[in-house]
Design a protein around this nucleic acid. Structure first.
Lengths: 218, 218
DNA sequence: TATATTTGTGGTAATATTTTGATAAAAATA
DNA sequence: TATTTTTATCAAAATATTACCACAAATATA
C-alpha cells in the first residue's frame, strides 16, 4: 500500500482529496501547515508527496521540497498551485519533480496523475530492446522470451555501457574505467572474462572483438 | 540550440515533457494531433522527433515516420508507446539512429535519452568522409557503400594518422613513432607492409609514395 | 557463521596479426 | 644504359592477442 503525504492549507480541499485517496486505497498523511510537514519529513518513508506551493504560512512548498530532496533525490512529488509563475519556478529548480497541476483542478484529474506516477515510478520503467532481449535499465533485469536472464552487477554494467552507445568501440582501458573505476590496477584480462561471461549468458548479443584494441556491440 | 518536435496526444504529459525540454534549453514544437504534425513535417528543420505511436487520431506515429523519412533519412526519432507490439513493429521497419521508450516512462529517463542522442548524432559526430569511404573514429569502423571494411588496429591507426592531417608527408620514422611508439626498434620495413595492407583493403585511398622519404595521403 | 554467488587469476589452446626475409619492380643516379 | 637504391609484394614464421576453463579469492546472503 502506497503512503502519500498531502500538504494543503485549504482545509476543505485537503479533506476532499484525502477521502479520494483513501477510496483508491492509499495510506494518507495530511498536513494543513507547512511547519508541521517540515518537521515530519524524514520520519517515515513516503512514496509520493502532493505539495501546495503557497501554504499561507512562513513555510512554502519550496522549503519542503528542499528538505525532501536533501534526504531522497528520487521520490516523486506533485506540485499544485494557482499561479503559473510558481510552477515555472518549481520546474526551474527541480528535475526530480514528476508532475504539477494547476489549481483549480478536479480531484479526479489529480487522482489520475497520482495513479500514473506511482505506476511509472514503482512498477514500470524504461526498457531497451535488442534482438530478442528486453533490458530494463531501472530494474536491472534482462528478459529473453519473457524469461529472466540473471546477470551479475558487472555483467549488467557492461551490457549497459554497450547499449548506451551502440556501435562505439571501447578499448580495454575504457571498459576498465567505466566498470571497475579509475583506481583499479589489476590485470586487464578481467575484461576478457567478463566479455566471455556476458556472451555466454546472452549469445545473441553481437559483441565484436577488435583485435589489439577492445570490443564493441553492433 | 536544438529544435525538438514533440507529438503526443495526452495533453498533460505533452506539456510536462515540453517544460522539461525547455528547461534543458531546447526549442520545442509541440503537437497534440497527428494531423497537425503531419502537415508540419518539412516546414522547418527539426533536430529530433519524439513521437507517440498511438495518437488517438486517424494519423499514427507510423504515418509520421514515413513522411519524415521520405524527407530525411537520418534525423533521430524517439518513439514512445504503451504497447510492446508497437515497439516490435517499429523495430521491424526502422533502421535509423532511433530509440524507443515504453510508456509510462519517467521524464528524466526521456531527457537522458534525448541528451545522449543529440550528443551522439550532432556534436560527437566523429565521422570523416573520404571518397566513397565513411570513417567513424569512435566506432573504429570504415564503411564503403554501407559495407564494413575490416581493418586491424595498426591499419586503422595508420588511416587515422593520415586523415587527421590530410596532405601531410610522413617519414618512416614519423610513422613508426605514431603507430608503433617511441620504443620500437625493429626494422622500418614494417611500414611498407602496413601501407601495402591498407592500400589493398582501401584501394581508393590515395597514398603517395615519396621516394627516399615516406608517404602521404592526398 | 556457514553457504552461495560473484569476481579475479593463471595457464593453455585457439586465432589473428605482424614481422621477416626473399625476390621482383620501380625510381634515381651516373 | 647499367648500376644502385629504394619500394612493392608475398607467404611463411614469429609474435601478440584473445577465448576458454577451472579453481581460488572475495563478496554477498542466509
Amino acid at each position: 500500500m502506497y503512503k502519500i503525504c498531502l500538504v494543503e492549507d485549504e482545509i476543505s480541499l485537503n479533506n476532499l482529496i484525502k477521502s479520494y485517496m483513501e477510496k483508491e486505497g492509499y495510506d494518507v498523511i495530511q498536513f494543513y501547515k507547512g511547519n508541521d510537514a517540515l518537521e515530519y519529513i524524514g520520519k517515515e518513508k513516503i512514496d509520493l508527496w502532493v505539495l501546495d506551493i503557497m501554504l499561507g504560512d512562513s513555510i512554502s512548498g519550496y522549503d519542503l521540497i528542499k528538505k525532501i530532496r536533501s534526504l531522497d533525490k528520487n521520490v516523486p512529488v506533485i506540485f499544485t498551485s494557482a499561479r503559473d509563475q510558481d510552477l515555472d519556478k518549481i520546474l526551474g529548480l527541480e528535475l526530480g519533480s514528476d508532475d504539477y497541476i494547476a489549481k483549480p483542478y478536479s480531484p479526479k484529474e489529480l487522482m489520475l496523475r497520482i495513479n500514473n506516477i506511482l505506476k511509472r515510478v514503482y512498477t514500470n520503467s524504461s526498457k531497451i530492446k535488442y534482438e530478442d532481449y528486453e533490458i530494463d535499465i531501472d530494474k536491472r533485469i534482462v528478459l529473453h522470451n519473457n524469461k529472466e536472464i540473471n546477470l551479475t552487477t558487472l555483467e549488467f554494467d557492461l551490457l549497459y555501457m554497450f547499449l548506451s552507445n551502440k556501435g562505439k568501440s571501447y578499448s580495454r582501458d575504457d571498459i576498465l574505467n567505466v566498470i571497475w573505476g579509475e583506481n583499479y590496477f589489476g590485470s586487464d584480462r578481467v575484461v576478457d572474462d567478463l566479455i566471455r561471461r556476458l556472451r555466454k549468458k546472452m549469445p545473441k548479443l553481437n559483441i565484436n572483438t577488435i583485435y589489439g584494441f577492445g570490443y564493441r556491440l553492433t
